[in-house]
Design a protein around this nucleic acid. Structure first.
Lengths: 203, 203, 203, 203
DNA sequence: AATGAATGAGTCTTCATTCAT
DNA sequence: AATGAATGAAGACTCATTCAT
């Protein structure tokens, strides 16, 4: 009976592994547990993944790719202003953070893994996607940002911070509004605009 | 006279360990290496720390405490505006993020380590410290923020995002300025102030 | 078909371990050596036993059980007199004492090992088995013993003493005879029977 | 301040160590604990004993010597019959077993330690002491024993078995009587004397 | 393809012993 | 003499990976 690799099983493994890797640090996750929870043999893991690190890498990568792809679709279909697109982005990241907190948790990692390159690549792609929106806003005169690349990198972090802070009486809409408001006009009182405060003096 | 436990040696161990843990993930750091680099016997580690995890925990905790304490001192001595104090905060977090990037690895998981509770506690303390500054700014009419607690939780995340993004031609001063600018007046073009964009419509 | 845990291998490990534990004290037996002598990987030990202590415990317990079971079988099949059954018992204990002399090392401490309770239980069972024979002999008028339970507890000790004394020119048969003779009619010269000597006077 | 080795301290160490070694197996007793309980520095142990094994050896040895010496004194002063002396011996061993169960427990060990030789020597001495009494009894026609050396080795074991069996409603006098009775005329019913039962037939 | 028993390199940890004070 | 910090050899145990079935 020849059996072909089952994509469903692969997905299952990733799902289980995502949960476990999110629950405890890398070195405390045992492939034994992954196999047991997925109700497959330990050897089967190696049919679908080359090893622990690659499983971890695939985990991160595929989660990222899914989110980026979905978002890219939404943005390309959008005719909104940059700020409205930014809201879409924040909303997407927030939605993802809520729906798969585990995977989201994982993506934060600056871990030095062999796969890090690819993950970084996808992160980079996400960042570019956001930066693109920002640049369009700048070009349209809607936004003013000296370093849109850096700002882009903040978006996910802001969502992450909000999700982790996790005050129970804040709805996603509240958080979304708050992040958008911060991104839009900061927290300085409205009257005094202009360069913020004293420039740093020493190194 | 008897030999007493040497606080200097303890500090040395923590320092070496911090460097190694910062360079690679937890499970790739060998206590053998820590001992070797500190030029002490492997057993000596266990005189000062109960084990690998506790060493790591002490590392994090003491680093955190040091940062919070130092910052608290600076802030209490400060006669600056809230925004200027916010700059002090960003600067302190940035400095710390540079020195122990892997710190974030641990702080995420609320369960694993015995010390996790304490770390969370310190995190909370830090958040309160920031929120206090924000509230003072609001009271002074210098800031306008509907949710200073949430905003406070962003600060570290912003720094973290910046550090992880890590574009090589950006100095810490640049990052600091950028974060402050974002926090201060956001990225909306100066002319159009007011509530940002369309309020979310669906759930 | 899948590979199943091999009871044969488990038996082999126990056998090898029994030999090594019999040759030197517990803390001088290295699991490395057990694995090497059994020609299996070190990890395989942990497939069959949870650790060194559990291996040792299993060793003792199963040895004990085997002896008791074998002996019980012999006794139930026996139509001998009580004294003849006693000889069977002494012979069985003697055989066991020869094969695992260090067995006694562990059995003394009632706390240390998780299995200690079970060992004690088996010991008790053994004692009961012997006491039963003694009681039968008493009922048959073959024996006279005011405290068969206590006497039962002596049997193993006598064997143990003999084995530890270990004079090289004594065969097991000699020892067996000697113990039986002692148990049977003691060492008082034949003529003078009756209560032995002066009853103790002070407390 | 020159300090001479303090015999009192040596005795203290031995006493503490005896308690600990009796409570758990050799490899679970830590010199740290011995030092801590004796309230001395760990290094001090090495002033009085060359190492762990030697401490253990000294422990066993001195306990043995004390008992043997005391007993030898009693016996040399005795003008009793052999059976009465035997009662003295049983009583002495029993008393010792009751008063310092720890040390007594230890003396049973057949452990393979470097010190084993000396212990064996003392054990041997004790055995000789007993055997001497037995031989005198045989010479006097009071006893009949084909192997007094072996019988001598039983005495302590019998006491040990009795102490370990430890039924709460038996007094020391009961145990003493029982052991003496067993040694004297065994447990065969009075009428049938002579060689016990069937001689073993196979090897 | 699936399995899980077998493996052994890799590490943490222990603890008897030493030695500077 | 007394101490206890320092040491590092030794060994138990883990777990990712392999492979025979």
């Amino acid at each position: 009976m020849v059996q072909r690799p089952d994509p469903e099983k692969r997905r299952l493994i990733i799902e289980i592994a995502a949960r476990l890797f999110a629950a405890r640090p890398y070195h405390e996750v045992k492939l034994d547990d992954v196999a047991a929870e997925a109700k497959i043999g330990k050897g089967t893991l190696y049919v679908y993944f080359k090893g622990k690190e690659q499983l971890y890498a695939a985990l991160l990568e595929e989660g990222y790719v899914a989110m980026v792809d979905k978002l890219r679709g939404e943005l390309s279909a959008s005719t909104n202003s940059a700020l409205e697109d930014l809201r879409l982005i924040v909303r997407a990241v927030l939605a993802r953070a809520r729906s798969v907190p585990h995977l989201f948790e994982l993506m934060r990692s600056g871990q030095t893994l062999p796969c890090a390159g690819q993950i970084t690549q996808h992160k980079e792609e996400m960042r570019r996607l956001i930066a693109q929106v920002l640049r369009r806003g700048i070009a349209d005169g809607e936004l003013a940002d000296p370093d849109p690349d850096l700002t882009a990198s903040y978006v996910q972090s802001l969502v992450r911070a909000a999700v982790l802070y996790d005050a129970p009486d804040r709805t996603d809409a509240d958080v979304e509004d708050h992040i958008l408001a911060l991104l839009t006009h900061g927290i300085a009182a409205a009257k005094k605009r202009g360069r913020p405060t004293s420039r740093r003096t020493e190194s």
